[in-house]
Design a protein around this nucleic acid. Structure first.
Lengths: 196, 196
DNA sequence: TTTTTGTTTAACTATTTTGTTTGACAATTT
DNA sequence: AAATTGTCAAACAAAATAGTTAAACAAAAA
């Protein structure tokens, strides 16, 4: 069986869709645009994915799984708390270079009816993380608050400047390079803000 | 001249569009959907706004202006620094009830080519705010960092949990009411995080 | 070599969405 | 009373997009 050429093209189409959605924020890309960007005939999208909707759903679920694996890797890694956070920041900013609009995409999709498929898996990770946060508060390394609020703080400080970059960069009057530099400083800023 | 009925309907259509875009995150609402939601004939949208694109642009510019006025009001108000931040938080969370997706909408629009029309006005406000932040750092009320980073922190901590609510609420496994309660606690959390 | 498979091209259909036109009608203005 | 204005309804034209089908072909597999 030819397990190769077809899988490659299918993957190419999926990756191109991801690039357009998560990478460039073009959430309304048409099948034609996706095909063009992939350098592939538009009919192939139907051939492999049957319908546009189906492709969108598959990509959405991929993104979900990616996010879950991402947090999993951090939370279940065998590291001291603070190092975990640092690891998370590194990984996040790394992925953000390729897919800055992943979260916004998820929100827009969920506003159109999509939802998560495996809540179990998530809450398992979260519970463990909340425990660790609480422990860290007892040690006095971070301010006391509901662990959920700490998590919100962490995600907010990290994701927002990435997801909202077009808006922020323009609002704050930065050039590309200036904003890039701001982002590079950001890891340390976030650590200082989270840990007292 | 009848300065009334027509202006009212034009406004109604605009408000309905805003409600769908900023309020419900339905960024792809069709003219038909907008008309239905407004309880008005679809042709009226063309009658008043000529084209769908035009309506979208007008709404976008309205949103811009709204954001500018918003920050203006806070920054140029005659209050001590910390109270300004509190005022900002109050106003933001208040508006968030009506238009939680305003920022995301702006980002999606800007990813499709829109941009700000009056950068001057913005930088005037920002410069003043940066000065105040720097001053506050000298006083030792907040950690030293580039004022831009402080601003990023502030906006991130505030906006992210609002804009990304569908994603976060689902991810964190909250019911509506639980997330609402989390948001109510949030003002104090943010203040504690920003000020040392 | 023959067959199968992945891919392209092109033509065509269906559906959705936008935009236009026209005629009617009620309310308001003149 | 007559004219104007805002609104609606219905029908239609035009464009954009999605999806289907069939014929052809090259590369890989049999």
């Amino acid at each position: 069986m030819s397990d190769k050429k077809d899988v490659a093209t299918e993957q190419l189409i999926k990756n191109t869709a991801k690039k357009l959605f998560f990478g460039e924020g073009r959430f309304n890309a048409t099948t034609q645009e996706i095909a063009d960007e992939a350098g592939v005939n538009r009919t192939l999208i139907n051939y492999y994915f049957r319908s546009r909707d189906n492709l969108f759903n598959i990509v959405f679920e991929d993104a979900q799984q990616k996010e879950i694996n991402f947090t999993d890797m951090v939370v279940f890694s065998d590291m001291p708390f603070r190092e975990k956070i640092e690891k998370y920041l590194d990984m996040y900013f790394e992925q953000a270079k390729e897919y800055p609009y992943l979260e916004i995409y998820m929100v827009t999709q969920m506003n159109q009816g999509s939802c998560f498929k495996d809540p179990e898996q998530i809450s398992r990770v979260l519970d463990k993380f909340y425990l660790e946060i609480a422990l860290e508060m007892d040690k006095g390394n971070i301010d006391k608050m509901r662990p959920e609020q700490f998590l919100l703080n962490m995600i907010s400080l990290t994701s927002f400047p990435v997801s909202m970059r077009p808006l922020l960069q323009e609002t704050m009057g930065f050039k590309k390079e200036e904003y890039d530099r701001l982002m590079e400083e950001r890891k340390q800023i976030i650590l200082n803000t989270l840990f007292k």
